[in-house]
């Protein structure tokens, strides 16, 4: 029965979501990229030369265009570009979703605590958020990686998350402020509930939908930051990603000689971020009834 309630809520939201053309397109594109990411696990097993990082076609010494054995062609050392593109999809999902998830967790907890506690705690946390919010995350990442050498992909994920929580916490805080004085929160205080219980049991379920909405926008920015960082040559060198592919095409001087190498990762980055953005916009409509068209409920 309990699960039933959440399933009902979800189905109702899903109906409105999927009626939105943006939502529909976003889901379709997202599903395609998800399939690509899944495929990246199987491709190296077909033939070891399809391994995106270490697989080299022994017959090929230079970058070649699309062919039957290499659907998108190969790079200048004979690695399969299609396999790299699939691997890139996987990495984009890992980077985007995990750093968005971390920043949402940090942002939601800090936002709820700050809004609920008020006073000094609120002031300190929000000034901290302001300070981080005005820092350009890409520049910070560049400085850090030039200071400490090249980062592991997980450290990059973590730094993006640390740089991106303040906007989330601001929104969650304002939502918490309006929830704080609702009678059901006061009723729970009268019943003797602790502050922690009120925050996690009563406030969190009410702000969670908003947090998920912001998560989709965080995914977009995380993917873009990682791609930019990799393209500039500060990415994780042991990890293929779309940004890395662009960096390799640039560094090997094939920028204008091999469109089959340059275009797919660029288009993929744009499409995947676009699909998350469309998802967010459609979700916005589910959460805010004022944005809906007449007749939808």
């Amino acid at each position: 029965m309990l699960k039933n309630h959440y399933i009902q809520r979800f189905l109702k939201g899903w109906k409105i979501f999927i009626q939105n053309p943006l939502g529909k397109m976003g889901v379709v594109i997202l599903v395609v990229f998800m399939l690509m990411a899944l495929a990246s696990f199987f491709v190296p097993h077909i033939n070891p030369m399809y391994d995106p990082m270490t697989g080299i076609d022994p017959d090929i010494k230079i970058s070649t265009g699309p062919s039957l054995t290499h659907l998108l062609g190969t790079d200048n050392v004979g690695r399969d570009l299609f396999a790299q593109l699939l691997e890139g999809a996987k990495v984009a999902f890992i980077v985007g979703l995990s750093s968005a998830f971390f920043s949402i967790v940090i942002g939601t907890v800090i936002g709820m605590v700050s809004g609920y506690a008020g006073g000094m705690v609120d002031t300190i946390l929000m000034r901290m958020a302001d300070i981080i919010m005005v820092m350009p995350s890409l520049v910070i990442l560049l400085i850090l990686s030039s200071l400490f050498g090249q980062f592991n992909i997980w450290i990059i994920v973590f730094i993006i998350a640390i740089m991106r929580w303040p906007a989330v916490s601001r929104v969650i805080r304002s939502q918490t402020l309006s929830l704080k004085h609702r009678p059901f929160i006061e009723a729970s205080r009268v019943a003797g509930a602790s502050h922690l219980r009120i925050i996690f049991r009563h406030i969190m379920p009410n702000v969670l939908p908003l947090a998920f909405l912001y998560m989709t926008f965080r995914v977009t920015s995380a993917i873009l930051v990682e791609a930019a960082l990799s393209f500039l040559g500060f990415g994780d060198p042991s990890q293929v990603s779309w940004g890395m592919m662009l960096q390799w095409v640039w560094k090997s001087g094939h920028m204008f000689q091999a469109p089959y190498w340059l275009i797919p990762p660029g288009v993929s980055i744009s499409l995947l971020t676009l699909s998350f953005y469309m998802l967010g916009r459609a979700m916005d409509e589910v959460l805010d009834p004022r944005l809906r068209k007449e007749g939808q409920s």
């Binding site: 029965m1 309990l2 309630h5 609702r182 009678p183 059901f184 006061e186 009723a187 729970s188 009268v190 019943a191 049991r201 009563h202 379920p205 009410n206």
Partner: peptide, 17 residues
């Protein structure tokens, strides 16, 4: 000491059974 609130639409958390 317990309390009953004025507005029954606001005094129950919509997410709790």
């Amino acid at each position: 000491v317990q309390m009953i609130f004025q507005d029954p639409y606001q005094s129950l958390n919509p997410h709790l059974s």
